[in-house]
Design a protein around this nucleic acid. Structure first.
Lengths: 259, 259
DNA sequence: CGGAATCTTGATTAGGTTCAAGATGAGTGG
DNA sequence: CCACTCATCTTGAACCTAATCAAGATTCCG
């Protein structure tokens, strides 16, 4: 697989994101009550049950440009974040400097729980385009949990969902490359749909290399499989613009071996 | 891969484990304060901080024989469990009846969190030998969390640990079969050691088939890789009795590609 | 506009699955 | 307790999928 070394340490030093962590809110902030994403995120269907408590602890930071980091692996855990717009990739750099992509995050999704294990983030989170997040400092959130059992329950449910998602992913190692790519596309599509976006037309934020790294297959294979899918009329690709044309064929492919 | 169909439905009907769920405690119950596993499990290092509350909600059920189920996938979520002795495997049956092994659990480890997503267990848990568990009904536990922030924190940390563990596993799909098997052995060894057991000599509870299914490789390959490791003097195998002879060689193998 | 990164396609090669068959071990009933 | 049977485990040979190596096409960005 890829062998390029990633000069983390030096980049870490000059990350322009650092120093921007001022407490003052970003002007374009929205209250949870007005946010179109509220039903998807930690807020869930129960907003009325904790009217303003969440708004009180949320920090709206200024949007991060593409390629900036929300946090770095091994730095102290402080906050949970919810993606408001844009998108991120989670990855880890090994001791030898190899990058392993661990996941992609869309608006409404929660990141930062990887810091709960030993109070240090275990992954790095990088934006794939200009991205806004809601920051939830964890200590105040924990206090909120004491009196808001439903909120805690929602939080646990999301964490459990991540775990199950990850288990699904683990099953990718049982699958052929076609199945993996199909699984990736269907997963993204379902998540787009949840966000009221088109389930069939997607603008991928990540490079083929990121996808390849994530799925554990070679970049060339990604290209080949996508081309094959297109030849069969299952999808239509134009760079990172992908249209799903035949859901049942993709679905069928998944059921064959996953299930 | 394996294609045998698993007759779940019928087995589910006659599972002798069912009907044993009486509330009355099992005679051989131990208080958390005396339990040798307390530092490993949810109790953690802070036992003195919630003296008897946990003991009050824990249900000690009678030991389950080998091959019995702690719970079945898709049944209502009720409790978290902590393994006290023995061992379990988590698996899921697909709609087509194919079994996918998702993990193995040793004494001190927590199972049941897969039920937190939608209040139904998403996996099935089967004992690999005679096994005792501590049952923690979730509602009372949630109540405990309200006043015991440290306990909640510990719970979240364990869940996060599972997630990270799972991410490591996902990375297996990037690895060669030798690396996967080495990772499996080293992981087990580390977990044995945590339990004050020998890190070098292990009595595997699971079959080669379970391991193969878990790692996503063929049974034959497992055999071949283990034999190769033995030929190199790295391990010694006698059926399910495995002795690790050369930790650094195995470690080196992991670092090569994982990192 | 030019250079670099990204993406696609082709040819070769290596690693792992599959198929096949024998060996070992565990569980069952006489 | 032994014989029998079935499941588990090991080893070999052929095949096939996906990685690697290589080169051209396209896109992105300064």
């Amino acid at each position: 697989m890829d062998t390029e070394e990633n000069p983390v340490v030096t980049e870490l030093m000059k990350d322009p994101c650092r120093g921007h962590h001022e407490k003052s809110s970003h002007p374009s902030q929205i209250k949870c009550g007005q946010c179109v994403l509220k039903k998807l995120c930690l807020v869930g269907d129960h907003y009325s049950e904790w009217p303003t408590q969440l708004d009180d602890i949320i920090i709206h930071k200024r949007p991060l440009q593409k390629g900036k980091h929300l946090y770095w692996q091994d730095t102290p855990f402080k906050s949970i974040y919810i993606v408001q717009s844009g998108g991120l990739k989670a990855y880890r750099l090994s001791s030898r400097g190899r990058e392993r992509v661990l996941g992609f995050y869309l608006p409404g999704e929660m990141v930062g729980t990887d810091g709960l294990f030993n109070n240090r983030y275990s992954n790095s989170l990088m934006t794939l385009e200009t991205t806004s997040v809601c920051e939830l400092p964890f200590q105040p959130l924990l206090k909120l949990f004491e009196h808001e059992e439903v909120l805690l329950r929602q939080f646990l449910s999301i964490m459990c969902g991540e775990l199950l998602e990850e288990q699904q992913l683990t099953l990718l190692s049982h699958k052929s490359t076609e199945e993996r790519v199909a699984a990736f596309l269907m997963n993204l599509s379902a998540r787009y749909q949840k966000r009221q976006l088109s389930a069939s037309r997607m603008q991928l934020l990540m490079t083929r290399k990121d996808i390849a790294n994530y799925l554990g297959i070679a970049v060339e294979t990604i290209s080949r499989v996508l081309s094959r899918f297109q030849d069969r009329g299952w999808i239509e690709i134009n760079g990172r613009d992908i249209q799903l044309r035949n859901f049942s064929a993709l679905e069928e492919l998944l059921l064959q071996a996953t299930n």
